[in-house]
């Protein structure tokens, strides 16, 4: 754990606009450290930057679209910070974080900040405490904060709890009409982007999306066709995002937020493996404990 004095010094430097201090603070909060100090620092501060999340299956072009948005935002003289999540190996804890390669046109531009984050556990599509990281970036002075999730697909609803605007990317030929009726990420999307809009079938997918998402009586979900290759639709998408009202922020006391707090609390407890649980791990490895029993014992230990 970092010393209190060191954190105070970091916060001082952060207030003076020191970029390396910002960098270190983002690392600390994404590891679940210095959370209280950062919360106190940010409390009562009003900033305008909204957290815009991009989600969708892997290979749909999230990083590429972020790269295009960066270019568009910079061309308007505004600054942008990107939090890009990639999965971490459940087996080794290693991760190959390559998203920034698709955003490299602006490498070396101080108006662009990109952090690659490994999402632990393999289950969640975003790393913990990202909302705090986003607030730090906004407070530092970035005009926009974009979050790119792991390509988690249908179950990817964790972004809903922390983002102001959720953009779902789909591509042509994603499946038959029934795919659209499934619950999950489609329900939390504020905007649907039909990406790779230059491919054959894109127009049909766009029509399908519009018809099925906007049934009579439903709240309307905008559908935009975008091609990062031809840059068609990029400016329109950004305009749409800028005009979109923020969703009801999670500062409300809703059950989903509570659930997330519990998940984060448990995850924090496992920032380091509790040494006194080694015997449970050994018994489990030797087959003396069932999976469920082993989990129960470790959870009981954490709650104590």
């Amino acid at each position: 754990m970092t010393e209190v004095v060191a954190i105070r010094e970091l916060l001082d430097r952060f207030r003076n606009g020191d970029r390396q201090a910002l960098n270190r603070l983002v690392s600390l909060v994404s590891r679940g450290e210095a959370l209280e100090e950062v919360r106190v620092e940010l409390s009562g501060i009003k900033h305008d930057a909204r957290l815009i999340a991009l989600t969708g299956n892997s290979g749909v072009g999230k990083s590429t679209l972020v790269g295009q948005l960066i270019e568009h935002i910079r061309s308007q003289g505004e600054t942008v910070a990107v939090l890009a999540c990639d999965p971490e190996s459940v087996l080794t804890g290693g991760a190959l974080l390559g998203d920034r390669v698709r955003m490299s046109a602006h490498a070396g531009d101080v108006g662009v900040w990109v952090r690659s984050l490994a999402t632990t556990s393999g289950r969640q599509s975003v790393t913990a405490h990202l909302d705090l990281a986003a607030q730090l970036l906004a407070q530092y002075g970035f005009d926009h904060v974009i979050l790119e999730t792991v390509g988690a697909g249908q179950g990817d609803v964790a972004v809903d709890a922390i983002a102001d605007v959720v953009v779902l990317l789909i591509q042509p030929e994603i499946g038959d009409e029934l795919q659209w009726e499934k619950a999950g990420v489609l329900e939390v999307a504020d905007v649907v982007v039909v990406h790779k809009g230059d491919l054959p079938g894109a127009a049909q997918t766009e029509t399908q999306a519009r018809e099925l998402l906007n049934l009579p009586g439903c709240e309307e979900t905008p559908v935009v066709r975008v091609s990062s290759k031809t840059k068609e639709g990029i400016a329109e998408l950004w305009e749409l995002l800028a005009d979109l009202p923020s969703r009801q922020r999670v500062s409300s006391r809703d059950t989903r937020r509570l659930l997330r707090l519990v998940q984060e609390y448990i995850a924090d407890q496992f920032a380091a493996w509790p040494e006194d649980m080694n015997s449970v791990a050994e018994d489990w490895a030797a087959g003396k404990l069932t999976d469920a029993d082993a989990v129960q014992r470790i959870l009981a230990h954490v709650v104590d």
Binding site: E88, L96, L97, S104, G108
Partner: peptide
Amino acid sequence: RGLRDAGCHVIYAGLWQQPEAVVQTVGDED
């Protein structure tokens, strides 16, 4: 790939980078 498998968090920044850009990446990625 090898360092990933050894448990590192590897941030691959790609080809043809300028020294200035690499150093900014190192900082922003902490």
